[in-house]
Amino acid sequence: MSDQLIFATEVILNGLMAGVLYALVALGFVLIYKASGIFNYAQGVMALFAAMTLVGIMNGQVPFAHLINAIFGAHITHFGWNVPALLAIILTMGVMVLLAWAVQQFVMRHLVGQEPIILFMATIGLAYFLEGVADLMWGSEIKTLDVGLPQGLNVWIDDTTYGILGYGFFIDNLDIVATVIAALLVAALVAFSQYTKQGRAMRAVADDHQAALSVGISLNFIWVLVWSVAGFVALVAGIMWGTKSGVQFSLSLIALKALPVLMLGGFTSIPGAIVGGLIIGVGEKLFEFAIGPLVGGATENWFAYVLALIFLVFRPQGLFGEKIIERV
């Protein structure tokens, strides 16, 4: 194998891994859009909020400490204990369920039947509100997130590929973990929607919410459920991205990485989000590797959108999206 081919193979493998991380973010968008037709602009901020809450709970941080101190003249910051990662994840999930309930109770319930653009606007408001709440609740400093996930070069892959090709491939252990978790997550989501009563109700609402309502399915409950599941996906994405870069406010910008994935994979398909993520990941990395040096580099952000646009032109509903049929 020539050096260039070996390097390209390494780039493709890393692109696939990066694609999984993009897909993790895209999944949250798909879940909510599929069930309620809402493009949830706040999905990135939900990942940030979930990750901040997780770190806060793990570190025993007092929520709203700055506010409490300012009002009562106190100087409290921490409870003085640390919470194990698994328990903290469970507690964070509880907070995300509460958030889902609050979103449904105070925002979405009042907007039933409104135009999609109104619902979209509501999620923009929600995103900025949630960002502010996260700041007030946990502070704006950059936090280290360590839930015990391995990071760095996978030595086995490095040694094995070096033995075969004379060049050791770099694969990040965290990316391997993310791939396994994404696979488990998708399997769990599919199993949930296929084999549980609530999952089937969720699918019924996604297909036709008026028909679902007529057979006694509670829309309120299903939407809280959908936002909770999206919150769980956001938590998983927040853990993966937060482990890489620390938990900080720019974590909400990972949503930008999900948009081309959604354009490509469709807004209503879970397999679409995964395959879309992989195509975007490989496409942008390969383009950067092959063409980047000729045009000064930094092509990944815009090329992902070019790739998505090309797919959009030929298949507006996305790779796996439901075909749009308008009958007159």
Binding site: F7, N14, A18, K244, S245, F289, G297, A298, E300, N301
Partner: peptide, 21 residues
């Protein structure tokens, strides 16, 4: 050699793979 990273810079795998090579 100059390696640009697009804003915000959460994904830098390409740049660091190149540095590794």
């Amino acid at each position: 050699s100059a390696l640009p990273v697009d804003h915000p810079g959460q994904e830098q795998k390409s740049q660091w793979l190149q540095i590794r090579r």
